[in-house]
Amino acid sequence: MKAAVLIKQVPDTTAKIDISGGEVDESGIAKWSISPYDEYALESALQMQKDVGATVVAITLGPDRASKSLVDAAAVGADELVHISHEGAIGSFALQTALAEAVKRVGADVVLAGKQAADTNAGSTASGVAKILNWPCVGLVSKIDASEGEFEATRSTVAGLERVSVSSPCVFAFDKGEDKLRIPNVRGIMMAKKKPVQKHTMADLEVDASNGGITESSVTYPPQKPPGQKFEGASSAPEVVSRLRDEANVI
């Protein structure tokens, strides 16, 4: 069995985000990491490596710096590494098409990804890749038990948790996983650097790297919050609640 893990390199969640000229200023980002939910997907794939002898292929799409996330994946045990290089903005469909093509080329039977990336916070990739491959998708997964060609997964729904079964080939999108993430081992790090990376471009995957129907995009700081307001007495509670809804948009 071959398990492909889609990992995205994002600014570490603790990084300060500076914006200049309508774009995030990447030079100010001190640390890049594998997006947190992708790490749970990777951990689950590594469990499959142990339990059913799966070969784990880490696939990333992004600029040169993103190859570091493949080395990080190799350091914890990924067997094969694939880097689809691409600079700049890209529409969701083009991105998913490229990833799906890479999944086909490595011959994976199952795809694991995080439910959403920590930078765009979108959550489209796993489901879109599943559609392009015409494989079923199970979202918000926290645990997978794999046997050859069959999976049982725990997923979260509005009603609570449920166990679902699904056959290979299929796609899983990870929520926070039940398994603790493994700590990399320095020997793994030393070997990881030497592991070959298969490089692809959008052109050799035959993907039109357009930005979909998006004609303009820019990034700004969130609006300044209004100055703090103080209310007297418990009777002001409903007023505060409605401001949290309408002004702050947080509930």
Binding site: A75, I189, K193
Partner: peptide, 10 residues
């Protein structure tokens, strides 16, 4: 080196 920085981060 890159490896030393990775070890540092771990």
């Amino acid at each position: 080196t890159d490896e030393e920085r990775m070890i540092r981060d771990v």
